[in-house]
Computed example of a mutant assay.
Amino acid sequence: MKRKRFTEEQIIAVLREHERQWRTGYSAKTLAHCWENADGLPQEIAHMFDGLVELLLALPEHKVALDGGNRDSQNDVFALIRFGDQTCAATIEGKVNEPFGPPVGEWFAEPSQQKRDRMCQLCGLLCLDEVPPSHIRYQLMHRTASALIEARRFKTDEAAMIVHSFSPTRMWFEEFASFASLLGVEAEPDRSSKVVLKSGQRLRLGWATGNGDFLEC
């Protein structure tokens, strides 16, 4: 099967703020060059899975609709991945030194009804009984929820949210680890961890270190 990939031109076309985001040393450009130069999946992403791994589909800046408001969750890469005899719907969050956006305590301070609706949906998908602690990063919640939504839509065996980090110092890993812990997962760099949510959905979380050479592209 021919792998579905994307070009630099396709990514630029869908970026919301072209000049600010498409810069050397920043995540959008770095991630695009890494994925376009890979033979299928970048090696560090393939290592998040067991057995023979194959990229079936990759879409840049993939939007997933969420309750509350008009702004979708825009995922850096959405990938359908086959590993062994299983399939996975994965959202990939590219990072260099950029943070994960505001913490829940800031995003959900004096929330509107739209934000309440969205938080209710996210907590439902993530099988959380209450709004997460204030330090948890909201972006990690909706990126992971996106993977769960798409896993149901494509009827895959599992969902995955993987941070593809090109930071030499692993900036923001502790924030990722705190989020993973919330879901009962112990995070470690360059490996994935799996959990079965109360809903029965299988979820994989991972932190993959990207090739720093792409920071110079």
Score class of each variant (00 low, 15 high):
V195N: 08
P102E: 14
G51H: 02
A180D: 03
K155I: 08
V14C: 15
A187P: 13
E188F: 09
T156S: 11
I12M: 13
P189G: 12
A159L: 10
Q74C: 12
R152P: 03
A159P: 14
L140N: 13
Q139E: 08
S27F: 01
P132I: 01
R204V: 04
R143Y: 03
E8M: 09
R16V: 14
L57V: 08
F166M: 09
F83E: 13
E54G: 03
E158D: 04
T30P: 07
A46M: 02
I11C: 14
L128R: 11
Q139N: 14
A38C: 06
L126A: 13
K198R: 15
G40T: 02
F166G: 10
R202P: 00
K194G: 05
H135F: 11
G51D: 05
W172T: 06
P42N: 10
R170G: 11
L183W: 10
F108T: 09
V185W: 07
S165H: 06
E216L: 12
E36W: 01
T91M: 11
Q74T: 06
D67G: 03
K29L: 15
P42R: 09
P111E: 01
T209P: 00
A109I: 05
R202F: 00
A159Y: 06
F108D: 15
S73W: 01
D67Q: 14
L15R: 10
T144A: 14
A58I: 04
C34A: 15
S27G: 08
I162Q: 08
D76K: 12
E158C: 12
T156W: 09
Y138T: 07
I81P: 01
G184T: 01
G40L: 02
A208C: 04
L56A: 06
R170C: 15
T144W: 04
N97D: 12
Y138I: 07
L182N: 09
W22S: 15
A89L: 01
S181E: 07
C88M: 01
E93A: 12
M119N: 07
F154Y: 15
A46G: 11
H18Q: 13
G94Y: 00
C217E: 10
S146H: 05
N37C: 11
F83V: 00
L182G: 09
Q121L: 11
P42T: 05
A90K: 05
K194F: 10
L31G: 06
D76W: 00
L55K: 02
Y138A: 13
S193L: 04
A28C: 15
I136F: 14
G25S: 09
R82T: 03
M161G: 05
L140F: 00
E175M: 01
V53H: 01
Q21V: 02
D190I: 04
Q10F: 03
H33G: 00
Y26S: 06
S27Q: 09
L205G: 06
R170H: 14
R82C: 09
L57S: 12
Q113H: 05
T7G: 14
R5T: 10
P42E: 07
N37W: 00
E174S: 13
G206H: 08
K4Y: 10
K115M: 15
R204H: 10
H135Y: 10
P103G: 10
E174M: 09
L80R: 15
A147V: 14
F214I: 03
R137E: 06
L55Q: 08
